[in-house]
């Protein structure tokens, strides 16, 4: 990080003042729930009731990691969806942002608004829309496929592979606009002079973007990917609603069961708050690790 306001200027306490609201609010509202969840993760702790919790040490963690028939499957599902649903879309969002940012495009507002619309819809409506689009008998997707193929209709929401495809499409559809907006804002910060120099050299559009835009966007890409990892590893609502809630546990062969979905099931349906807390902290560790990798790769690319 480059810094210009130095400690030697004796303005030492201003930055602390500026960052203090977060830490004050965190102490008042965030600390107790976090300590509570660390605490419960070491107990056999029922969600509701009068029976006294029993201390089990790391028992919940070892149970989840070595015994539980769903956790690893859920984690694998989450990572697959993270790649297909949350990370790949950056390859679409960046060109999209560049296209919209291009000086020659008219109607920027219209396109920007259209692409961003899915982000502002509630998950429930998104899922209803896609449930209809991908319906086996009445869905527009199978109807279109019918023109090019005579094969049996694909039961999108009832087959393992189909569930993953639909979820990936939903996540892409919902969050591409969001990533596009981040990159649009990032593009505004790239000094125009850099492009002018390249134009004098006669570089092609593609070259220009590879050699100027992408390197300049790296911090924003790091940011966008970090958020995708944080959000993607905690994906819950979309698969939960699309595959039918707790009673279906992610649909056929649990292929829509994500880690957060399983966490919620464990705490709120199986009523094992302690084990649910343990899963939450395991997810936390995975997110930290993946973002460590993200940071490392970004630093390497920045050189």
């Amino acid at each position: 990080m480059q810094t210009i306001i130095r400690k030697s200027r004796k303005q030492g306490w201003y930055p602390y003042l500026f960052v203090s609201p977060f830490f004050i609010l965190f102490c008042v509202f965030g600390l107790y729930p976090i300590l509570y969840s660390i605490f419960t993760s070491f107990f056999d702790w029922k969600l509701i009731g009068t029976s006294a919790p029993r201390f089990v040490g790391l028992g919940n963690y070892t149970n989840v990691l070595t015994q539980d028939p769903f956790f690893w499957k859920a984690l694998l599902n989450t990572v697959i969806l993270l790649v297909t649903g949350s990370l790949l879309q950056h390859f679409i969002a960046i060109p999209l942002a560049i296209m919209i940012n291009s000086k020659t495009v008219k109607g920027k507002e219209f396109f920007k608004t259209s692409f961003f619309l899915p982000y502002i819809t509630s998950t429930v409506s998104v899922v209803i829309i896609f449930g209809v689009l991908f319906d086996t008998n009445y869905g527009i997707v199978n109807w279109l496929i019918g023109f090019v193929s005579d094969a049996a209709k694909i039961r999108w929401l009832q087959e393992s592979f189909g569930i993953k495809v639909v979820l990936s499409v939903v996540l892409n559809w919902k969050y591409i606009g969001w990533n596009m907006v981040i990159y649009l804002a990032g593009l505004q910060a790239i000094p125009y002079e850099l492009y002018e120099a390249a134009m004098i050299d006669g570089a092609s559009t593609l070259r220009k973007h590879i050699s100027i835009t992408i390197p300049q966007l790296l911090p924003i890409i790091f940011f966008g990917v970090a958020l995708s990892i944080i959000g993607g590893m905690q994906i819950f609502e979309e698969p939960f609603i699309l595959t039918g809630g707790y009673e279906q546990l992610g649909g056929h062969q649990n292929s829509g069961l994500t880690a957060a979905y399983y966490l919620m099931f464990t705490a709120f349906k199986a009523y094992r708050l302690g084990k649910g807390s343990a899963i939450a902290w395991l997810i936390f560790l995975v997110i930290l690790t993946l973002n460590g990798v993200n940071r490392y790769v970004t630093k390497k690319l920045e050189g």
Binding site: R155, Q158, E159, Y246, E247, Q248, L249, G251, H252, Q253, N254, F265, K269, A270, Y271
Partner: peptide, 22 residues
């Protein structure tokens, strides 16, 4: 029993396997 919800969810998985013929 207190395990009913868990068993029901797993049971629905078995039903799905049979419906899909897997």
């Amino acid at each position: 029993s207190e395990f009913d919800n868990v068993i029901l969810s797993i049971w629905n998985g078995a039903v799905s396997e049979v419906v899909n013929g897997t």
